[in-house]
């Protein structure tokens, strides 16, 4: 029996010991990120419980209350059909949550798959993959969106799939970059030399070690997708009316009655701005906190 040689050093704070500690760190080290986080939570909450929170239905028309300014009855005023803007914004949050989360999730899955396979296998396969990604990225996003939506037709499903693929393939670069550095680690070599299978190496060794960029990619993508969806809706290519999307509200009643009733444009506009800003600062904070080199810096 060999004696216990070196004593255990006091462990530095564990990186993954509970989400509560992580949130505590977020509030302590990144106040702006924490602010973004709080807004994101509120946004999620509004989206999930829009049915309970909204005082009126999103399509509930009230002809005598058309174009009313914000008041105690209609906190954000009403539009040209007398629909309550607060309710419509809340239901809009719901749509944004659904589209944002599912398209960002799809984008992340695509990025991770393409990035890990291309980065790990390398060689000719990587070369071909990356030229395809180059070609894909050289198209302006909006052009692809407009073309595909006009072919497939608008609707929630197509929008999610298109946005997911669009951002997924572009984002694979970030994951590939991370994989290129992770795969050079001796522990990957050790797994190869024991004869571990390719899926095992990718799943057990590569993926867990690129989780930090994956998480950051996902959060920033949620913001980007919401913004892109609003843009599509504004162009009339998103989820068709009367669905209360923020972009649709901006382009519909918002644009037509902007001078008469500015709250129609301001309410959804501010919703988009605040939520996307909050997601971005939260994503930045996450990136900094998950990067071990940034530990201890502010």
């Amino acid at each position: 029996m060999v004696a216990i040689a070196d004593t255990v050093r006091p462990a530095p704070p564990a990186p993954s010991s509970g989400s509560m500690r992580f949130i505590a760190r977020l509030f302590r080290d990144k106040p702006l990120g924490a602010f973004g986080f709080v807004i994101c939570v509120i946004f999620l909450f509004c989206g999930l419980f829009a049915d309970l929170l909204a005082p009126y239905g999103y399509n509930q028309i009230s002809p005598i209350n058309r174009l009313k300014p914000p008041s105690s009855t209609f906190w954000l005023g009403t539009d040209n059909l007398g629909r309550d803007m607060l309710s419509r914004c809340l239901y809009g949050a719901q749509l944004s949550v659904i589209i944002g989360l599912s398209a960002a999730a799809l984008a992340t899955v695509v990025s991770v798959f393409v990035g890990i396979v291309s980065g790990y296998l390398g060689g000719k396969f990587d070369m071909v993959m990356q030229r395809f990604v180059d070609a894909w990225m050289s198209f302006p996003d909006l052009i692809i969106l407009i073309v595909v939506v006009s072919v497939v037709g608008p609707g929630m499903g197509p929008v999610i799939v298109i946005l997911g693929l669009l951002y997924g393939i572009g984002g694979s670069r970030i994951i590939r970059g991370a994989v290129l550095s992770v795969r050079e680690n001796a522990y990957v070599h050790a797994a190869q030399s024991t004869g571990a299978s390719l899926p095992r190496i990718l799943w057990r060794h590569i993926l867990p070690n690129v989780m930090a960029p994956v998480i950051v990619l996902f959060t920033t993508r949620v913001g980007a997708v919401i913004l892109a969806e609003s843009g599509l809706a504004f162009l009339g290519l998103g989820v068709p009316p009367p669905a209360p999307t923020w972009g649709g509200m901006l382009s519909g009643s918002g644009r037509s009655f902007m001078y008469l009733a500015p709250w129609l444009a301001l309410a959804p506009g501010l919703c988009i701005t605040i939520v996307v800003y909050a997601i971005n600062v939260f994503g930045d904070a996450l990136r900094d906190l998950l990067d071990p080199r940034m530990r201890g810096s502010r």
Partner: peptide, 23 residues
């Protein structure tokens, strides 16, 4: 090579890079 890998193993130089930090 797979069955043979059982009988020949390697110990690495870098004690930090050779262990997967997530395992």
């Amino acid at each position: 090579m797979r069955p043979i890998r059982r009988r020949m193993q390697m110990v690495y130089q870098d004690p930090f890079g050779s262990l997967n930090p997530r395992m």
